[in-house]
Amino acid sequence: MKTAVITGATSGIGLAVAKTLCRQGYAILGVGRSQTKCDAALKQIKTELPKSNAKLFCGDLAQQTDVNRLAEQISQHLDKNHDGKLDVLINNAGGVRNWYTTTHEGYETQFALNHLAGFLLTHRLLPHLSRAQGKMILTGSDSHKLMKMRWRDIMFKKRYSCLYAYKQSKLANLLFAKHFNDTLSDSNVRAYVVDPGLVNTDIGSKDTSGFVSWFWSKRAKHGVHPSVSAQTYAYICSEPNLTDLYYYRCEPKPHSKRVNSAGDAQRLWQLSEQLCNIDYKEALS
């Protein structure tokens, strides 16, 4: 039985991908922030797909302590039930904060949740992915375009803008995936980024207030149902030998030229390793 870890699996795109992969016979290990929402999502999956093999783990991915604990729990579960093999890791959890807030480490929340959480979780689960010659998929966004890394103030301490912090975190997703493929071919794991398009989810309204929340609730109505985007994730999971990086509606798509900047990718990688206190080379040895 193939295995998939999906973060942000209790609503929106994550839940739709969980259901889609359940239908295709994957064992699903989901991650959600609130126990109540984890329970509700699991119930929903079990009701719609009684034969599914799904389990949900609860934790706040913005906090590195939680990411490390979740990784340990998932790792043990994989060792016990799936010969330690993980076929797909989908780093989907992400969010928007209209005020500057920090994690327990003092990192800006969007950078920590949208980028560092996936960077750290992938490192922790890399041996399992490697064993299954698996795939790592990030939920990206076309909002990474017309954006560059703000190296002088990567956590937006000056002039915080929730939109620009979000755009940068999505550019970071692409730089991470690109550098992953460029430098970790020994791992036999390949990274992909999905542009889900405009999807009707509550990403922009659940942790925000005022104008941002109002604007997103109006805009989201024009988005597609999450199950439409889920098809692209399922496509990447099932197709062998996909060589492109960025996918939209089951097709490769051009990304911003800035993603090709090896300097930016290398710099982000080093900074992320430092901020997570990890070394990717060690994970493979």
Partner: peptide
Amino acid sequence: EIKHGILRQ
């Protein structure tokens, strides 16, 4: 947690 965050930056 904040100690780690500071030392890494």
